[in-house]
Amino acid sequence: MTEGLYEDQFDSRHDFAHNRRATKTLIIASTVRSGSHMLGHALHATGAFGYPLEYAQPKNLSVWKQMLAVNDTQQTMQKLLVRRSSENGVFGIKIHYRHLDTLGGLTGLLHCFPDPHFVLLTRDDVMAQAVSLAIARQTGNWISGQNESDVEPEYRFSEIDDSLRRVVLENASWQYLLAANGLPTLPLRFSDVKNNTRQTIADIAGFMDVELDVSRIPTTPVTKKQSKSLNESWIERFQKETSEGDELLRYHAEKFTYRLKRKFR
């Protein structure tokens, strides 16, 4: 990630001037490469949902702690609730499932954020999401707007397999956690964000009982699509190898043998 783009999220120009703490929270419950960046920026453009960013991502959280001169995660979030809540008292945050630990799990999350409303964001095509993740891991190109990396990604069956398992597991984990605790949840598909941004934001506003200035609702996505023909070729190759069975069986046999060697070493 280019440093300028990464550091922009910490710029004080994104703070809201009213200095009022949040009374309601929008939590985008997401997984990596699910389109949460696109959704967060579209919501920010309305001025009614704070600035939904990955405040709980470990690297980001470390920077915020240093900037705000605090060591405690809860205190950091309390300060962000003042800085980044929109004038209507709404704070927004994106949380990938694995970042819950930085907040102290669900209990810590509920303690941090007032009146949380969860938008569960998923992609219909989890295979495409997994390949996108595998490519981003190699190139470091995580969001649109970055300078293109010089790294030429290489197809690796194991990386796509691991990425797919992560996406499926974390999607299911979010679904279980929210359902098991009876938390207010609006399921949302990435395709809806991309193809009908205006209606998507209106649906979120209705779900949260938030008033909107309709003139500020984006009619089209505010970020650009990153996927290319490379992604499609990787999907085709992975699915071919998986359907043939040999590559999948060999890969998992090697992993099982490795674990046994470590266990009985």
Rank of each mutant, 00 (worst) to 15 (best):
G4H: 09
Y6F: 15
E7V: 09
D8L: 13
D11E: 15
H18S: 14
R20T: 13
A22V: 02
K24M: 10
I28N: 02
T31C: 11
V32E: 11
V32C: 11
R33D: 05
H37K: 09
G40P: 02
H41I: 06
H41S: 04
A45W: 02
Y51M: 12
Q57G: 00
N60P: 01
M67N: 05
N71C: 09
T73F: 06
Q75L: 02
T76G: 10
L81F: 15
V82Q: 07
R83F: 00
R83C: 05
S86D: 08
N88K: 09
F91S: 02
K94M: 12
H96T: 08
H99P: 12
H99R: 10
L106V: 04
L109W: 06
P114D: 10
P114E: 06
H117D: 04
L120Q: 11
T122G: 02
D125T: 09
V126T: 03
M127S: 08
A130Q: 04
V131C: 08
S132I: 02
L133N: 03
R137F: 07
W142Q: 08
Q146Y: 02
N147V: 12
P153D: 14
E154T: 14
S163P: 07
R165V: 09
N171E: 15
Q175L: 08
Y176W: 09
A180T: 03
A180Q: 15
N181C: 08
N181H: 15
L183K: 14
L186Q: 08
R189L: 07
K194R: 00
N195V: 00
T197V: 01
Q199K: 13
A202N: 11
A202V: 13
I204K: 01
F207V: 03
D213I: 01
P218L: 10
T220Y: 10
P221H: 12
V222T: 05
V222F: 01
S227F: 12
I235E: 04
E236M: 06
R237W: 10
F238V: 04
Q239H: 05
E241G: 01
E241L: 00
S243H: 13
L249T: 12
E254I: 05
K255W: 11
F256V: 13
T257P: 05
L260V: 14
F264E: 12
